[in-house]
Amino acid sequence: MSYHRITLKVNGSLEVVDISGNMTLLQMLREKLALTGTKNGCASGECGACTVLMNGDAVNSCMVLAAECDGAEIITVEGLAKNGEMDVVQKTLVDLGAVQCGFCTPGVLISARALLNRNPHPTEFEIRDALSGNLCRCTGYNRIVEAVKVAAEIEGQEGA
C-alpha cells in the first residue's frame, strides 16, 4: 500500500497529514483530524451524511481519496460558524425544529450552504433537488426545506 504526506486547508487551518492510499477524505477527517462532525452513514456515496465542501463544492467525502486532497480546501460542519457566530442555515435549522437525531444534520447543513452559495434564491424544487442526496429518517424533510428557504430570505435581506 502507498503512503502519502499531503498538505491541505481544513476549516481555514493548514494541515499536514500522513495517510495511506486507501484512506478516504471522510476517514482522514474523522480519524486523523478529529473532525467527527462529518458522519459515516453508508461509505458508498448514497446517504450524504459525509457531505463536506471541497474547493467550494459539496462532495461525499466517502467518495474522495485523501491522497487526492493535496492542496485542497475543505470545509466541514465544524467550519460553518464564523467568529463564534453560527451560519444562517445552522440558525434556521434550529429555529424551525428541523433537527431530531442530528446524524444527517452536518451533511444537510453543508448541502444547504453549498446550494445558497451557488444559488442565493432557490425555488422550493431547487431546494428539494439539492437535498435529495441527504437521507434523513427522522424529520420528514419539510422543516429542513423550510429552514433553507428562510435562510435564503434572511441572506437576501442581509445582502440588500
Binding site: L80, M86, D95, L109
Partner: peptide
C-alpha cells in the same frame, strides 16, 4: 410550550458526540 430542543446546539455544530465519534 414549544421550547427549543435542549440538544440542538451541539447537533448543528458537529460537536454532538455519537458512539463512533469517541476516541
Amino acid at each position: 410550550k414549544s421550547v427549543k430542543r435542549i440538544d440542538v446546539q451541539e447537533k448543528v455544530t458537529g460537536a454532538a458526540q455519537y458512539t463512533d465519534d469517541i476516541a
